[in-house]
Nucleic acid binder design. Structure first.
Lengths: 334, 334
DNA sequence: AATCATGATGGAATCGTTTCCATGAGTGGA
DNA sequence: TCCACTCATGGAAACGATTCCATCATGATT
């Protein structure tokens, strides 16, 4: 290790080096009025000393902090990773740092993380809310500027979400068009929006809307697998499955393979969220693509713009047909 | 929207409510000495007012900031997402917030992000360094506590890395055992460590170490595809490819499919990094699994522990055999 | 009984910035 | 010539915490 750690350079050092007062330095650096000559002297001194204003001091004084918080259920999930990437891309263009927390879809952990963020005086927060969004009240009261992403938690918080209703409808219509009548939805807990859209879609097409046709998993891989396997095993009459996310889709493919259910011959599969491996999979998966990155980007824009915000932004999804869906064969499986 | 935004509750409010001085409140809350009765009064007041100490004030006074910075090339890449997850898991157990930046493997962007982090008075930083790590000198001089992850940038910075040498050797030996003699390495720029290990491994097994057998891509998907396609097209004599990361592996599979090169019949493929879809791929990919999450976790431990740190931690990799490698067929491809 | 040690307590300084306000210099107009 | 006005400038307060230090009460020791 080379040099000793040097004391932080403060505005006072710059003021001294430039032969002016600290107020003047502050003014020059934040674009206030100053004579051309002083401005030059200050700028030169700041550059020479490699001065960087302390965000701590600034934020303390300004009683707000730059920076935005981001809470996602699982950064390992491609969807949320892309969402986070969108947020980071937008934040970077504003020069704002982003503090990320992983909630694991656990409201308790979420509350804990919100607490940490408030302690940091974060006043802007983008979150994929877990639970029903009830515990957000204290955070909102604390003056937090919140935008929800991917899920519409409460109605008094602006949100950026994919068009679940249209996405589900497209998927159901596509499958119905292939002759499927028993279509199941394999989802995560808390996707009430989509489930509603699903049953509505079934109804509108005159398909049976059996209650057991929607299966819920928790957000872990194991739980997803169990749910998928259970569905495939106990319901030989369903000939098509809509998986409500990429880990659900992965679980469905794995479970089908394990149970010797062939896709698409025995069951057709549509997965929400287009991930790179959907094309690599065998068979390549037909998906409802979601603009994950855009969702993040738009959410960041919303939270960074101070003006009043629209209550909800809905971004379109898109059906990408590959090879995991086929016409229904006349005979039921097995 | 319901209530008005309320003023932040400060230590002064708590002191007043408890009928004591601010110093006493601070002492009680940070575990200093106080009489049982005062302690109780203070704690009660703090709880009643839902007081949260401001990290800004604390950090400003303490002249250090909690919190750790994390710089990764691409949060969308499963490997780095898992690495980040490890960091976040460890940081959470210490209650430390993590600020994430995406460098895109661009030294300039990296330097910019380091600047932002320094302004935030972050004093702890975990980074997957891009470039050769030369521009880290100013950051280190600024007293930053840095740990490198995944890549060993400079030798005066502790690092947590996978055992590339052993991983590469295992892969090469495995392929050689299947009869392959022309083995190519498809890597990213900056993987000098692995390339060295690769040529060493070839040499130790008496295999030809043609210079053209290592192909470099930039870290974008497009660049990876181009490199993979180029390799497959122009070198019909290579019968086995080692892909140095999951996006490289994905590109190789895609390119092979496009060029009608069959895996494993025409070429065998080993991919660095075990991702969930490796098993879903057709054929399922044989991989060198890397403990991405562990790397992140250990790096976070290192950067959070104040004690002196070991210069480098190396974590083992593991060969996971699936179905993308086969014996060399006598005839060359094409 | 006088002194000393101990421990609880609060006042005030400090961290690095922004911003209010007072001061002083210079300019234009009456 | 003098006044009013603008403009640059620097001192000082404030933000919210921690921590040094002095003070004071209490119990113990000689």
């Amino acid at each position: 290790m080379s040099g000793a750690v040097q004391r932080r350079i403060t505005i006072k050092d710059v003021a001294e080096a430039a032969g002016v007062g600290v107020a003047t330095v502050s003014r020059v650096l934040s674009g206030g009025s100053a004579s051309a000559e002083t401005r030059e002297r200050v700028l030169a001194a700041a550059a020479r000393l490699d001065y960087r204003p302390s965000a701590l001091g600034r934020n303390l004084r300004r009683r707000r902090t730059g920076g935005i918080g981001l809470l996602v259920p699982d950064i390992t999930d491609s969807f949320y990773a892309r969402l986070a990437d969108g947020v980071l891309a937008c934040a970077r263009s504003y020069g704002e740092p982003v503090t990320v927390g992983v909630t694991g879809d656990d409201p308790e952990r979420e509350a804990e993380l919100i607490g940490t963020l408030i302690e940091q005086s974060m006043d802007r927060l983008i979150a994929v809310p877990s639970g029903d969004g009830e515990m957000w009240a204290p955070a909102l009261r604390a003056g937090l500027n919140v935008v929800f992403a991917d899920r519409r938690g409460r109605h008094d918080v602006p949100s950026v979400v994919p068009d679940d209703r249209a996405g589900v409808l497209t998927a159901v219509e596509y499958l119905a068009g292939l002759g499927h009548r028993k279509i199941a939805y394999l989802g995560r807990h808390g996707q009430s929006q989509r489930v509603a859209a699903f049953t509505a879609a079934l109804a509108s097409l005159g398909l049976p809307a059996d209650r057991d046709l929607v299966v819920h998993a928790r957000s872990s891989r194991d739980s997803a697998y169990a749910a998928a396997a259970g569905l495939l095993q106990h319901r030989p009459d369903v000939t098509a499955v809509i998986a409500g996310g990429n880990v659900l889709g992965e679980a469905a493919v794995l479970a089908a393979r394990e149970l010797d259910v062939r896709i698409p011959r025995d069951v057709s599969l549509i997965m929400f969220d287009d991930v790179p491996w959907a094309e690599l999979c065998s068979p390549p998966l037909t998906v409802i693509a979601q603009p994950a990155q855009d969702i993040g980007y738009r959410a960041a824009e919303l939270v960074l713009r101070q003006g009043r915000r629209p209550p909800a932004v809905t971004l379109p999804t898109q059906l990408v047909v590959r090879a995991s869906c086929g016409p229904r064969v006349a005979t039921s499986r097995r």
